[in-house]
C-alpha cells in the first residue's frame, strides 16, 4: 500500500520508493531515511489535511500527499 493511505495510529514498514519517481526525489527520500525496512507512523496531520507529519527514525518529517504517494509500505503486524 501507499504511505498516503496510512491511517493515524497504524505502524508501517517501508518497502521502497515507487519506480516512476524522478531520480532526485528518489535520492532525497533515501537521504531522509525512507529506506527498505524503516518503521514509520503518522505524528500528526495539518489542519487542511495536507501535508502530513510522519515519525521516522526519531525525526518528524512532513510530506505533501503527492510525495507520500510515492512511498510503498506494508502495515506492521
Amino acid at each position: 500500500m501507499k504511505l498516503s493511505n496510512l491511517a493515524i495510529g497504524e505502524k508501517a514498514i517501508i518497502q521502497g520508493i515507487e519506480r516512476g519517481c524522478p531520480a532526485e526525489v528518489h535520492q532525497r527520500f533515501l537521504d531522509l531515511g525512507f529506506v527498505h525496512g524503516a518503521e514509520i507512523h503518522i505524528h500528526n496531520i495539518s489542519p487542511l489535511k495536507d501535508p502530513v507529519a510522519y515519525s521516522i527514525y526519531n525525526t518528524i518529517i512532513s510530506l505533501r500527499r503527492e510525495d507520500a504517494e510515492r512511498v510503498l509500505v506494508t502495515l506492521a503486524n
Partner: peptide, 10 residues
C-alpha cells in the same frame, strides 16, 4: 513543477 517538499518539525 512544485518541487519535492519536505519539512522537518524539530
Amino acid at each position: 513543477q512544485a518541487s519535492f517538499f519536505t519539512l522537518e518539525l524539530p
